[in-house]
Amino acid sequence: MAKARRVNWKRYVFGIIPVLVSVIFIWRLLTTSDSNNLQAILQNLPKEISQTLDSASSHKQDDAILEKFEKLTQELLKKQDEQLKTFERERKILEKRIQQLKQPPAHATLREKLAQVFEYGTTKRFPAFIWQTWPYSDLDERMDRTLQSYERSWGDKNPGFVHEIVNDDAVAALVHYLYSGVPEVIEAYDALPSPNLRADFFKYLILLARGGVYADIDTDPLQPVPNWIPENVHPKEIGLIIGIENDAHNPDWRSNYVRRLQFGNWIIQAKPGHPVMREIVAKVTEVTLQHKKDGDLRMNLRNDMNIMKWTGSGIWTDVIFTYFNDYVQSGVLSKITWKEFHDLKVPKLVGDVLVFPQSSFSAPEKDAKEGEGNNKALHFARHMHMRSWKQAPKVAQDS
């Protein structure tokens, strides 16, 4: 049985609609007697036609607009990248010119040069830097796993800080760059015969120039750096944070230390340009150049006292006490001696130097019992003495 032919009704609809529109238009034209109404109809007719055409072509127009917009966006991004590159080049040029302008006159003294190149701003915040040194990267297989965990802990506990581990080659390049205007410092650094002496000197050099925290690689942080400053002390009042290394209670302290009470230098926080950092850099420079002049750079570096007096905690302690007793610089009116810090249990602010008890940066591995002067809130780091300079150093050979 043959199938009935299906009527294509769509074709008839599209044919009937124009006819109906024409009939309605003619009817409205014939029935109206008002010329104004007729004129209004004729005027609105193009609008109705244009709206119909607009709706039919809207998709094509949208695509065209989007295409133009994307093209414009790409051009703007390209121009922005070019401008950023231009600004970066100009910034480097300007920074170089500023560095050149800060070059001190040749006739200036060592301390005058350091003061001019590295100005001290007491109201500035502590820069968010953590500096450490090691002969190679923490990713190197030679890196001790324990030391690796310590240095990574510094970064993990201080996520807002820039944490830099500077190797020996980078240290030398950085010192030559930062102290290009003070050639005496560069000469002294290059003359130091031991990597341990250079590491000691670098901690002072980087804190004077850039500020922040220096921590020996064998220190294990227990609390974030911002926790160090007590709530009752405003950060702007502080320019330097240190801890006590040794507070001797025995009369034979001279067999192990240079001073009755010594400040540690394995963890230091400083603002750039601080007078104590400037003076320690000047002192180490002078001592080193004198050793070079006298021809005794190869002195007995196995002797702890020699290291302490040259770049270590001995000379560091002397510089700090000298600063305390210099009213012009520290603003401290009374005489400051080791007794001011003997049996220290809480932080003490002297001038703009905040001094912490011995346990703050050398916290015991097993905390003492309550009631024995133990204050865990002040335990900020442990010093493990794993890279102690008490080991025999490698002395540089003559070329």
Rank of each mutant, 00 (worst) to 15 (best):
R11H: 04
I17H: 01
I17L: 13
P18I: 08
V21G: 09
F25M: 09
L29P: 01
T31I: 08
L42W: 10
Q43V: 13
P46M: 03
S50C: 00
S50D: 09
Q51T: 07
Q51K: 11
S58Q: 15
A64Y: 09
E67R: 10
K71T: 13
K71E: 09
Q74G: 12
E75G: 06
K78G: 12
K78D: 15
L84E: 14
R89Q: 13
K92C: 05
E95Y: 06
A106M: 07
L114Y: 06
L114P: 04
R125F: 05
I130Y: 04
I130F: 04
W131D: 00
W134C: 06
P135E: 06
Y136K: 05
Y136G: 02
D140Q: 07
T146K: 15
N158Y: 06
E164Q: 15
I165E: 07
V166A: 11
N167I: 08
V175L: 05
Y177M: 07
A199C: 05
D200E: 14
I206W: 00
I217K: 02
Q223I: 06
Q223Y: 11
E231I: 07
V233F: 03
H234L: 11
I242T: 02
A248Y: 06
N256I: 12
Y257D: 08
L261G: 03
Q262C: 09
K271T: 00
H274Y: 04
R278H: 01
A282N: 13
V284G: 02
E286P: 03
D294H: 08
G295I: 05
D304A: 10
D304H: 14
W310V: 05
G312P: 03
N325A: 00
D326A: 04
D326E: 13
V328M: 07
V328D: 15
K335G: 04
T337N: 10
T337S: 15
K339N: 09
K345L: 11
K345M: 09
V350I: 14
V350P: 05
G351L: 02
V355M: 04
P357M: 08
A363N: 09
A363R: 06
P364V: 06
P364R: 01
D367I: 01
E370V: 07
K376F: 12
H379D: 10
F380Q: 11
H383I: 08
S399M: 03
